[in-house]
């Protein structure tokens, strides 16, 4: 499979189909990092396998006009689709080398995001590679730990999140790594008015994480990057999973899985079952 990835990247770059190719490289110490290559000769250094957890869509310059080739797993492919339907990624500018993801491990055990993954194949691609024996699949909702959090009583859950958010150093790594956090000016950076206090304290930390979760409602593609990037291990996945599940149950919408969909919060149906009007029974 790695040969096909290298061949494709080489061909796309050599033929001028793309200006730049985004993939992974394994460093001599065994760690895996994302890499941008512009020269067909560099294609031999590409790698795919355990450690390739990064969502490469988070590293794409959405404002550039360069033609981009990009290696996308299932979760990354969903990010691409969601960006495309939100009008942020121009499909014509991208060549997608899809990979049927076998699930990635670190230290011998499967990544948590891969255990709970529901789509291992990107919804759109120009070419697709897969390892022998790996099948592409789509799954319904899976056990993702949310039930445990939901089963806590309100005070216990509040205390749980307070405890987690108290650790936040507001480095905004969660935001910066997120492929869907593309605002030119983040709500945290606005000063007229100042929505989020600059100081690190529980109340503003709560505000930040909750507002981010809401901004991702119906948009999060479950790539788990925010969770991975967090230097103090705040389980941001639970916030995102909770809202994703609400959106799926209410609107039958799973972000980034349908390239022809309208983003769920941009669509209004007159006979929307779940829109409550004054006087409706809730």
């Amino acid at each position: 499979m790695i040969d096909r990835i290298r061949d494709t990247a080489r061909r796309w770059l050599a033929d001028g189909i793309v200006d730049v190719f985004l993939g992974f490289r394994k460093r001599p110490d065994g760690t895996v990092v994302p890499v941008r290559i512009r020269d067909a000769g560099e294609a031999d250094g590409l790698f795919f396998g355990d450690g390739c957890v990064h969502n490469l869509m988070g590293l794409v310059d959405l404002r550039s006009e360069e033609k981009v080739g990009v290696l996308l797993k299932g979760c990354d492919g969903r990010a691409f689709v969601q960006l495309a339907i939100e009008g942020e990624a121009d499909r014509g500018r991208f060549k997608v080398l899809g990979v049927v993801c076998p699930g990635l491990s670190s230290n011998g055990s499967l990544e948590e995001k891969c255990e709970t993954c529901r789509y291992n194949t990107p919804p759109v691609y120009d070419e697709l590679v897969k390892e022998d024996g790996v099948e592409s699949w789509e799954k319904g909702p899976v056990a993702d730990g949310l039930a445990e959090v939901e089963s806590m009583s309100h005070p216990v859950r509040a205390a749980y999140f307070k405890n987690e958010f108290d650790r936040c150093i507001r480095c905004y790594a969660c935001r910066d790594i997120c492929p869907l956090c593309y605002c030119e000016e983040c709500v945290t950076e606005k000063s007229r008015p100042q929505w989020v206090e600059v100081g690190v304290k529980t109340s503003s930390n709560f505000y930040w994480h909750l507002i981010r979760a809401y901004h991702l409602a119906g948009r999060c593609v479950a790539c788990g990057e925010c969770d991975r990037a967090c230097p103090v291990d705040i389980p941001l996945k639970y916030l995102n999973r909770k809202l994703s599940r609400e959106v799926e149950e209410l609107f039958d919408y799973v972000p980034g899985t349908d390239p022809d969909a309208t983003p769920v919060l941009l669509e209004f149906k007159e006979d929307e079952e779940h829109v409550l009007c004054p006087g409706d029974e809730s």
Partner: peptide, 13 residues
């Protein structure tokens, strides 16, 4: 325009 990302969702609605 400094904040606009050009997604044109506004045009849609």
């Amino acid at each position: 325009p400094f904040r606009c990302t050009g997604c044109m969702d506004c045009m849609e609605v």
